[in-house]
Design a binder for these strands. Sequence first.
DNA 1: GTGGTCTAGACCACT
DNA 2: GTGGTCTAGACCACA
Lengths: 126, 126, 126, 126
Amino acid sequence: MIISLELDSETPLYEQLRNQIVIGIAMGTLAEQERLPSVRQLAEDLGINTMTVNKTYALLKQEGYIVIDRRHGAKVAPRAAVGQEPTEQLTHQLQLIIAQAAIQGVDQSRFQTLCGQIFAKMAYQT
Amino acid sequence: MIISLELDSETPLYEQLRNQIVIGIAMGTLAEQERLPSVRQLAEDLGINTMTVNKTYALLKQEGYIVIDRRHGAKVAPRAAVGQEPTEQLTHQLQLIIAQAAIQGVDQSRFQTLCGQIFAKMAYQT
Amino acid sequence: MIISLELDSETPLYEQLRNQIVIGIAMGTLAEQERLPSVRQLAEDLGINTMTVNKTYALLKQEGYIVIDRRHGAKVAPRAAVGQEPTEQLTHQLQLIIAQAAIQGVDQSRFQTLCGQIFAKMAYQT
Amino acid sequence: MIISLELDSETPLYEQLRNQIVIGIAMGTLAEQERLPSVRQLAEDLGINTMTVNKTYALLKQEGYIVIDRRHGAKVAPRAAVGQEPTEQLTHQLQLIIAQAAIQGVDQSRFQTLCGQIFAKMAYQT
DNA sequence: GTGGTCTAGACCACT
DNA sequence: GTGGTCTAGACCACA
């Protein structure tokens, strides 16, 4: 799995990393139950500090995306049941994106198509 | 237009403010060409520092959502032509949201429905 | 408020600190809405690193005991409504303590009295 | 006696194991003087390392919950005389739990009732 | 001024 | 080997 960080971005490194791992999980690049690289390993590969990776893992764990097994390190969490209702937070985020899209002149059908294309790349989808 | 800020949120005040204004524009609560309150006025109404509002307006201007006229203050920018292609940035943001939704078990049809409902509230949509 | 840390304890510093602050809140030593010392200040007073205090505050915030206001630092969170049901986690912890007490030969009435005495010191209780 | 370990928990395995055995003793699932399974046996049953079980037994012995006889393995220690005073450590733990309960809005009578319910399940109680 | 982030390097607990 | 904790010291974003 390829991870690229922008060191001069506004988004903190640990958050960029978190986002890329979340996408990786959803796209199946990181399979369910698969082991993530060790904190040290990943830190070295990316050329960043172990603490930063540590924070990322702690965050992902807290959000339920991964589980940390004392014996074997971090693994992708088992997937949730399908058919869940969208979170309120997710709805808010989506509303903001759609607002931006609408103002920028992207019409609804184009937007829905885009959603479809992105969903098609997700392995988590049934 | 009602703006509510969470002082104890992770998102900076200026960004919360920016988001709410963007949504306000998209939903038509702030009409095209309509004048925004003055920096001082808005800061006082919200009980925050003028610097914060200033930063918000500067950001909105830079993003093209408003235009700032020295004589008449800030106005909502004229709307873009419809039929535009989604920005790369927007696509990235959407991808992250969809990834999260997929992992949380929200299926595509539910997601698309939600998009439709949100779009329906946008006045900018043709 | 007096905080004492055991540097050679098994419990991590940030957790000891968290516990003492929680007790401080419950006992009213830290009043509702009261400001906590700044991260730097507290770190200096206790002779520990700012990161450690930072982690404590982040934890307390995540657990809902404090709120962090970007403008004025950390404050004690407004108190919850009374009459809540005990958490499952709390029940588990209590079960373990009672098990230990029972084995050590503390009988129920003595234990209940002790609870009463501790509750009497809590300002949060109505 | 059923023991279930959470591999992805924050609490170390040896501590989870210790806790469950303590509760087992208090509830009478493990009777006074009863033999505990051998280290090797228990480790195999639970699918964990023998070192972990070893550590648990050493801890339980040091705390006085079990006695280890070279010939007969580990046994539940004879019960203490009733009417003992609560340990200082136990009082501290209880104080922390009550503090949390109070902040979360659990009132004293509810808490005392809960204690009663838990005590009712303990066989050690007179 | 505040909290948030990051680094480099160290030590410890757990299995 | 793993993740977790801590330090000392630095810089940045926010208000």
